[in-house]
Amino acid sequence: MSNYNVPSELRYSENHEWVRSLGGNKYRVGLSDYAAQHIGDVTFVELPEVGSEVDKESVECVVETVKSSEDIYNQISGTVSAVNDSLEDNSEVVNSDCYGDGWLYEITADGDEDFNSLMTAEEYEKYLAEMED
């Protein structure tokens, strides 16, 4: 077991993003506990535009700390259907509540292939354990 919280219902990417299926090919995206603990204090999040079409692996979102600027690689191709506006005044929730209020944006996809291709919680835990070695 790793030292990180890895909710079992989510899928994960190698860049430590999580994706939650909201049903009807809608997905919510955020940063995993591992990322939230390692990135440093988040000071600002640049969010994508609602309505914009996004591809898998494109950079639609940037998370800033005092000393870094991290590109977030989008994992689900589709259309951005919502963004977490509350981060504008409250970017620290990306650190403090990464699976809850600290979510980043939502996507409406054409299908579920992208989602299914991501790591399951079990696989991600294994991935984290290997990384920590």
Partner: peptide
């Protein structure tokens, strides 16, 4: 707001 600047963002 240094995250905008070259020493952090480099080519971006």
């Amino acid at each position: 707001l240094s995250a905008r600047e070259q020493h952090i963002k480099r080519e971006k």
